[in-house]
Amino acid sequence: MSLRNDIHSAFDDIAPSTLGLPERVLHSARADHRSRTARFVRLRAPMSLVAVTLLIALVAGVLIGGHVLQDWNTLRNASQGNQLHKSDFSSQLAELEARPLNLPTLSAFDPCPAIGRNQIGFDYGAGPVYVDGELGGKTAWGQYWTVLYLISPGVSGPVLVRGRDLKGDGMVVFIGDYASGAVVGTDGPAGPISEHRAELVLRAGDPRSGGASTAFGSFEVIQGIARGWSGCLGLQIDGPTFTETITTTSFVSS
């Protein structure tokens, strides 16, 4: 064997799988970049200027957004009738939503059954869905996280995520493009007021997520829970052929 082959085999022997590594690195880099950008804005822009800019953006957004929404709804309604796969997706989602939420209910004195970092290297999950999370800030309402959901290669169809405090009544709420289900509140963790939704719906295998038969699909989500939560929460992740439960623990700060 050549020295090159010897070195390759020597290090390949100790190299762990790098499955999901690019997604983890890019997710953390994005979060780092956003936090730096936010700090930069806070330092450089006077608050009054920021407030006026936000107000103008809000008004313009309402005016323009109304038209866009109207057009989009028209387009959506027109295309819905002849797209059979959309109704397939909807019926599959309805089936997932009909599944009961089977998360454990714990007393205040029970230990939180938090699961550890998995072998692939993501924070949580036994597959086919994995979760990496980072603290995303607090408001008067509660705590938020920026969470990256990663869906294993080969999974397709809707993936439904619901969650709640395992030692209390608080439910996990979702904000953004993938948030779905009932509106259960509003808050403004990222500036403008956003709706809190009770469900998260991910479209596994969607090429826009990077998902494919050989690559992880990744979905960045803001999720949160109201103040007073116990520090122990559970997520139930339902897909067409699986149900996965993730329990996590976190320090609760006031």
Binding site: F11, I14, T18, P22, V25, L26
Partner: peptide, 27 residues
């Protein structure tokens, strides 16, 4: 990222330290 990880692993002989190095490099 993959070649970066391979480089870091071979330099540090520690998978977690290698991932940390690539992560910090990405920042």
């Amino acid at each position: 990222i993959d070649p970066g990880f391979r480089l870091a692993l071979a330099m540090l002989h520690d998978a977690q330290a290698a991932e940390d190095a690539v992560q910090e490099a990405s920042f």
